[in-house]
Write a protein that binds this DNA or RNA. Structure first.
Lengths: 339, 339
DNA sequence: CCCCGGAAGTTATACGTAACACTTCGGCGG
DNA sequence: CCGCCGAAGTGTTACGTATAACTTCCGGGG
């Protein structure tokens, strides 16, 4: 341990290890940094490693970071933790990070709404870069001001402050949904839209209206929770007869709300009303009937995002990419009831 | 900017600010550290702040951490991100942290099972302390080896490596569930137990068996997902008649699976079969019928946990606490069908 | 015999900040 | 008129690491 007048057994430093092994601090640094081949003898390296183990030496990261000017750590900013989508993005990104000796720290932006407090007030680790997933553009100001390399996932690709973008083909996903419903014969729709301000939802609305240009579409907005979605759907369905025959939801959570609304009004899903979700959360198969929804490659976008960030940090500009999504047809959709 | 021979506009340092303001680096440090009252004139302080703003100065955290020997940042380790329970714990803990000028970084232990890789390989920020929520004891080894102060939430209180514990009264929650079912008249139970190795589930099982000592109880184990829980419940219900009349589940997710199993077997919930959950996830009110379950004060345990860690860091030993939980009776429980 | 080169280390320094100890100076009480 | 005190800063150092530049030793080729 370092000489402390008395008491407090402060953590051992590389100098303490050096003393114990009978070598200089530089040698310790070389050996433990795996940079010693041909510069230090096997025997000495062994002595150093033994001494380090003996003392329980752990390098001081703050000092290392200062010296290297880099932390090999990135930050993943997500709008909310409540859905497993972002958990899966994290998993993928952390995996790729690990393969390259990088760490990944997670920052859940409060509520997923509002201009968001400074992410670095809470997750204030020293960082090399930032990945932001599906967050609103106005939540970016504090990230921008750091000047850190930024990769955006599932976000407006025209946002220029990002060094790279990785997107999902959300528009195609919505097109698959509408194609499916049109093929079943539906012509009168409700779009149960998220009131959260996010690019991904703008795209969903856009693609839906483009695809259903010839059909009848009513739009209802609600926050991203089951109760609010149920209320909104119930109000929309309570209108004049004949009811719309299909509800297209921006999200599985809202779709669950729509299903509850239908049940309250005595409508059967899918016989009287078809309901579609988006994201393929665990919830989609937890409810009855199971939801027809769009599966997103969450882990993969995480991996690609991290890879893009690593490329940016390397100086090599990464090719932006768009990942395909896939409609899963399950029990919540069927042909409309005969008129 | 610091003198770099050419190119790369490296970030300005406090010395650059000092130069620009015509003062010494020490003065910059005083002013920006808000430690200057009575030591630096208002005028000079203004000059420094202007210069800092002008240059876009941001202090180098690695250097500050090294100097201070502390980062004012803690790590929250959770077993999985897939349920909103831990998201709420994080929210509470981050709130309290923020009030004390602390940051909070999140580490989702992979899968929530297994001996868990080194948390610090992924979330490698330099840290002052660790809070671990509901994680298995064997996942602690790498945390223990760091010697960092550790606060455990909803975990085995006999685990001595923790500096403090904050627990939920899980046993009482389970007792409320069993009391409710016994009062309704149930005498034949299935316990759909989580196969995850965690103290919180051990307690649930223990409390259940203690309370139902006089009744008939069959135990079935399954992983924490809807599909596996459904299969397990279906198998258990397919046994000899008469069926048990109530399924007590370790978790809302498993309860959702149990409800699906019931439907497949033509049993109505709650008329033919009562089902209870635990945790009061959003899922509990997303399904039909809504689940009778136990609500946990997630944000509060997060706040208390962070407060305990701050106390430990201050040298003041915090009083350990146990937080109350509450049964929410909803639509998934009813008296058993007449024999 | 001398010198060169490689192996095996060591010495020294810089990273950017915070804070202790010191200086300078003007004013004021004795 | 001298000394002392407080205000306003400044010089300096240490935190622990990584690495460039240097030293030392030894064996071998010319």
């Amino acid at each position: 341990m370092t000489r402390t007048d008395h008491g407090v057994p402060s953590r051992p430093t590389s100098r303490d290890v050096a003393r114990a092994a009978g070598v200089s601090q530089a040698t310790v640094s070389l050996v433990l940094g795996e940079k010693w081949h041909g510069r230090v003898s096997e025997r000495t390296a062994g002595l150093v490693r033994d001494a380090a183990a003996e003392l329980g030496y752990r390098p001081n990261l703050a000092a290392r970071n200062l010296r290297l000017g880099s932390t090999r750590t990135a930050l993943l900013v997500v709008p909310a933790l409540t859905t497993e989508f972002f958990a899966r993005v994290y998993t993928g990104a952390a995996e790729t990070a690990g393969e390259h000796g990088f760490g990944l720290v997670l920052y859940p932006s409060p509520d997923g709404v509002g201009p968001a407090r400074d992410p670095f007030a809470s997750a204030r680790a020293t960082l090399d870069g930032v990945i932001a997933s599906s967050i609103a553009v106005d939540a970016l100001t504090s990230i921008r001001s750091t000047g850190l390399p930024l990769v955006m996932l599932d976000s407006d690709p025209t946002e220029a402050s990002a060094a790279a973008h990785v997107n999902l083909d959300i528009a195609d996903g919505m097109r698959q949904v509408t194609d499916h419903l049109l093929a079943l014969g539906h012509r009168d729709f409700i779009h149960l839209a998220s009131s959260v301000d996010s690019w991904t939802f703008d795209v969903r609305a856009d693609a839906l209206h483009r695809a259903l240009r010839g059909a009848r579409v009513r739009t209802v907005r609600a926050p991203l929770n089951v109760g609010a979605a149920r209320q909104a759907a119930e109000a929309a369905l309570a209108g004049p007869v004949p009811h719309p025959t299909a509800i297209v939801c921006d999200d599985d959570i809202m779709a669950a709300g729509a299903c509850k609304a239908a049940r309250r009004l005595g409508l059967r899903v899918p016989e009287d009303l078809s309901v579609t979700g988006f994201d393929d959360l665990a919830l989609a198969t937890a409810i009855e009937p199971e939801l027809t929804t769009v599966a997103l490659p969450a882990e993969q976008i995480g991996r690609r995002g991290m890879a893009a960030l690593l490329a940016v940090l390397d100086g090599t500009q990464p090719a932006p990419g768009t990942l395909p999504v896939q409609l899963l047809v399950r029990g919540s959709t069927a042909p409309p009831p005969p008129a």
